[in-house]
């Protein structure tokens, strides 16, 4: 993938800054996001990952700088996939209901879902292999299934850009594998996926590019180019330990999570 290929750029930002009062959450971030690529966003807690997602999703406005979506249709449809810990799982809705929520904008005010909306929901459920569980109340799903349900909702939204906050946190290895298989299929559909994560190992293995963030942008490139001892020390400071072993470098990080 070549970042200079203008036709493939989905999002262009330059000098993007967000300040909350006197606190700077993001400091002059500039990057291009390509159509269909999968990017891991890494950084310690408070590095501005959540803020970056909020700015991209349009939930908050940048204090300074420019954020522009490229392409003919203007602003793409953006889906935000929430962290599982932030969801009220006892809410009395079924899997089908939640995925249908993604259609709310397309259905329109004062209207009820039409055949096309139901079809989109069914297709999205089939895409993440949840057709059988469509009628279940959402607390009856496993962690992996819950995460897949939200991906289905993003698909029903017809999202071209998905922002996922710690989608793999607390999932077992087979469930994580299932999510990655779905992400591979999303790439074929040219859906751009931005994933906030704490897992350097997963980021190196499964993503096209890695964005290393600590208020300012410390690196945005292929994993092997970003994960250098100097850059990691820059991002994490004392919160990371780099240990040289016979088989290579060992990285020890704090095990913790942030959220929107």
């Amino acid at each position: 993938m070549n970042p200079s290929d203008k036709a493939d750029i989905l999002l262009h930002t330059s000098g993007l800054s967000v300040r909350y009062g006197r606190v700077t959450a993001l400091d002059a971030i500039s990057f291009d996001l390509l159509r269909g690529e999968r990017v891991a966003v890494l950084g310690p807690n408070g590095a501005g990952k959540s803020t970056l997602f909020k700015v991209i999703a349009g939930l908050i406005l940048p204090t300074a700088g420019d954020l522009r979506f490229m392409g003919a249709q203007g602003s793409p449809t953006i889906a935000y996939v929430p962290q599982r810990s932030g969801v009220d799982w006892s809410f009395p809705v079924t899997v089908f209901d939640v995925v249908m929520m993604g259609r709310t904008a397309q259905i329109g005010l004062f209207r009820r879902p039409k055949a096309r909306d139901r079809e989109m929901v069914q297709q999205s459920l089939a895409f993440v292999a949840l057709t059988e569980l469509a009628g279940r109340q959402i607390s009856e799903l496993s962690g992996g299934q819950q995460q897949r349900m939200f991906i289905a909702r993003a698909l029903a939204q017809e999202a071209q850009l998905m922002l996922m906050d710690e989608p793999l946190a607390g999932l077992d290895v087979p469930s994580q594998q299932g999510i990655y298989e779905i992400l591979d299929m999303l790439r074929e559909r040219q859906v751009t996926v931005l994933v906030a994560t704490h897992d350097l190992d997963q980021a190196a293995e499964h993503f096209d590019r890695v964005m290393l963030l600590n208020r300012s942008l410390l690196g945005f490139d292929r994993p092997e180019r970003v994960f250098t001892p100097a850059r990691l020390a820059d991002a994490y400071g004392s919160r990371i330990r780099l240990v040289e072993t016979a088989e290579g470098m060992l990285v020890l990080t704090e095990k913790n999570q942030g959220g929107l």
Binding site: Y80, M101, G102, T104, F110
Partner: peptide
């Protein structure tokens, strides 16, 4: 009844409501 689906969305997931431009 008229705003049922919108009210459900902002009750269940306000962030979804915002990204849907509700």
């Amino acid at each position: 009844l008229l705003l049922y689906k919108e009210l459900v969305v902002i009750s269940f997931d306000p962030v979804l409501g915002a990204t849907l431009r509700l």
